[in-house]
Design a protein around this nucleic acid. Structure first.
Lengths: 385, 385
DNA sequence: CCGAGTTAGTAAACTCCTCAGCATTATCCA
DNA sequence: TGGATAATGCTGAGGAGTTTACTAACTCGG
């Protein structure tokens, strides 16, 4: 426990950080407002905020034609556009990139379809392409990107490799970190898609109030991401949440109940088949309801294992099937009641298919915070790896 | 994010805390040593440590006949005996109390047998009795106890109740916090026994190096306690780790394989039956080995669920059966290999049956730390609830 | 027995930070 | 145009840690 002593300059750094926190995510603020938020005196805030302006972290906004009594105050604004981060979702069928500023405002979102059978090199080329498009469309260069996080399917190890397994063809051999490192000198990270979705749900989704969350990715594949005590749980080898690997948990075959439901139009693609069944169940089709019930029953075993292990506050039902949450959540709740000691809240995700990229953005922002604001902030510039 | 600004006095508090950390758990130290550990200058440490002495947190030790070159240094010592904490294990067959000083040195350990069928009132009377014995033997009063933690079997809610289930007869109706609050004005907490054992393993057991730990309580009952990122995981309702409640996980019946093994002497008590089987297996008895294998196979399903969910660094095999870890760990490892993606380390506990009380002591110490050292430390005295 | 060398304790000067209070400035309203 | 109001700017006070220098205490070796 080498708790280290504090001295004056460190205190100043801390207070400067406090001002950054008070500035960021708020509308342009006066010194008085900042002083109130930060719990510091006006003069102290004044010199701190002026230092921030000098370093380039903040901007002055001279008073306009305000209609307030008294001398109108100068306002200070966090320069959220001093840097940007990229969140990338490398899916089976698509590649999605989201560019965000330092305040988490989404600047641009672009997607490209990808051949599901594309080999890693082609897929990475599409990643490069969509990144280029985003940067070109927003007039940015790779140096404007301060951190970059990529979401992929399958357990991701510390090096960003997906050596254990992944449905992306050939991807176990891919090294996306190394690939992107040739173009970006900022921190590049790869993370599992379920984990990123979980992060997104806590950031902008339906679990903003919760600290202990199980995110369920429900689609043709099933997976889970865990947030405990407000932080993403990776596990010692990055394989937390992979309960689906247990044979007694029939997550691998659970969606088959939907695919093999009698009555599905022969023209339907695999993804649409499930949607058709959910719709039919909604309409009262007997066989569809049975299929959904069977699917739910298999799903519930794994969810129960997660819930019993972690006792979370919320379980978020997300992924491709989350649009049909209305026909799944109730039977799922019933099944869980059978298995669990204490039932958590069940909520349906509303983030859609951008949640992975969104979570990637959030993680990249966290990375920037850790690096730049971790202890004493330097001039605004892209952190190096 | 109301990060609050720091001022001079707060800085001083922090540095004083730093000195406490540098002092505690170390042999009596000179000012120079403390300055090195705390990263502060000698004069600064000097005034801080003298303030601590004045408040009663530290003691001076005048230099003796040292044979070192130069002027012999005064040494300062943390007054670990300024306060004490109690850890209590309320088991089915026994009640165990451990008294510790503020540095975690165990001062006294006492146990009392309890009738397994004793009602809550009688069991609480035994708790009172063993606490009285410990205090009398060490010449302490209830006011010397700064925090008290009790370990019981079954999931414990925020109020310290065990309403869901517990093998202690009638205990679902018991309110140990209320009972002890009549005698102790310090913080009183109740916690699940598996969780406390997990804490103990990380404190003084075989998992001191790990931050992500699954503790397995293996005995006539089976349970688990989780430590993630170095902190105990309670779960939102205090029911984390209760994977044994899942029917697909046959933890409830797993020990039956041992109890029903042919060849057990009719004279053996239930607890000894398992021990006999383990010994027979060790000696090569065919049927005993089969029984152990079956037990292990059932055990492994639940462990695999925990491991796949959490991806811990270490699984600690503890509880009554841990003395026979030599015949269980290897088959368990084989079973887990079948189920898991990434195999964690498997270690056998060596703490024996005092681990619950030990973990309770650790939690009580943490409580004291949070209260007294949380922000700015006051004069040494028992914190109030 | 004494002086050189070494280390601990102490005091003063200095730097840096925050805070409180007062004068100054800019704007609105009567 | 003058008064009210609120923000800004400035200056001095107080507190905390650091540096530097000096004194005290002890060991070792001649």
């Amino acid at each position: 426990m080498a708790t280290t002593g504090t001295d004056l300059s460190r205190m100043r750094e801390m207070n400067q950080l406090t001002i950054v926190w008070a500035l960021r995510g708020n509308p342009p603020s006066t010194v008085t407002e900042l002083a109130g938020r930060a719990g510091l005196s006006r003069p102290a805030v004044d010199v701190l905020v002026q230092a921030l302006v000098a370093e380039g972290w903040a901007e002055v906004q001279e008073p306009g034609a305000g209609s307030v009594v008294g001398r109108p105050a100068r306002r200070y604004r966090f320069r959220a556009d001093a840097g940007h981060v990229l969140g990338i979702d490398v899916g089976v069928h698509k590649v999605l990139a989201v560019l965000s500023d330092l305040e988490g405002n989404l600047v641009r979102t672009l997607r490209r379809p990808v051949d599901p059978d594309a080999p890693p090199a082609a897929r990475l080329a599409e990643v490069d392409g969509v990144i280029d498009d985003v940067l070109r469309a927003t007039g940015k260069t790779p140096d404007d990107v301060w951190a970059l996080t990529v979401g992929v399917t399958g357990p991701v190890d510390a090096a960003g490799r997906t050596s254990l397994s992944t449905p992306l063809p050939g991807w176990t051999e891919a090294d996306p970190v190394a690939h992107l490192a040739t173009r970006f000198s900022c921190p590049v990270r790869v993370e599992n898609d379920c984990k990123l979705s979980a992060v997104a749900e806590r950031w902008k989704g339906v679990a903003q109030d919760a600290d202990d969350i199980v995110f369920l990715l429900a689609g043709l594949r099933t997976g889970a991401g865990l947030i405990l005590d407000g932080t993403l749980r990776r596990g010692h080898g990055g394989a937390a949440g992979e309960i689906g690997a247990l044979k007694a948990v029939r997550w691998l075959t659970a969606p088959d109940h939907l695919q093999s439901c009698p009555g599905i139009p022969a023209t339907a693609a695999p993804g649409e088949a499930a949607a058709w069944v959910f719709q039919a169940a909604r309409d009262g089709d007997r066989e569809a309801r049975t299929a959904v019930r069977r699917y739910t029953r298999d799903l519930a075993v794994g969810v129960a294992a997660l819930v019993l292990t972690l006792d979370p506050q919320v379980v978020v039902y997300g992924g491709g099937f989350s649009r049909s949450a209305d026909v799944v959540l109730e039977p799922l709740r019933r099944e869980l009641t059978k298995h669990c000691l204490r039932l958590p809240e069940l909520r349906a995700s509303t983030l859609g298919d951008e949640s992975v990229a969104l979570g990637a953005v959030r993680l990249a922002l966290d990375e920037v915070d850790d690096r730049l604001l971790g202890d004493g902030l330097s001039a605004p510039a892209a952190p190096r790896r």
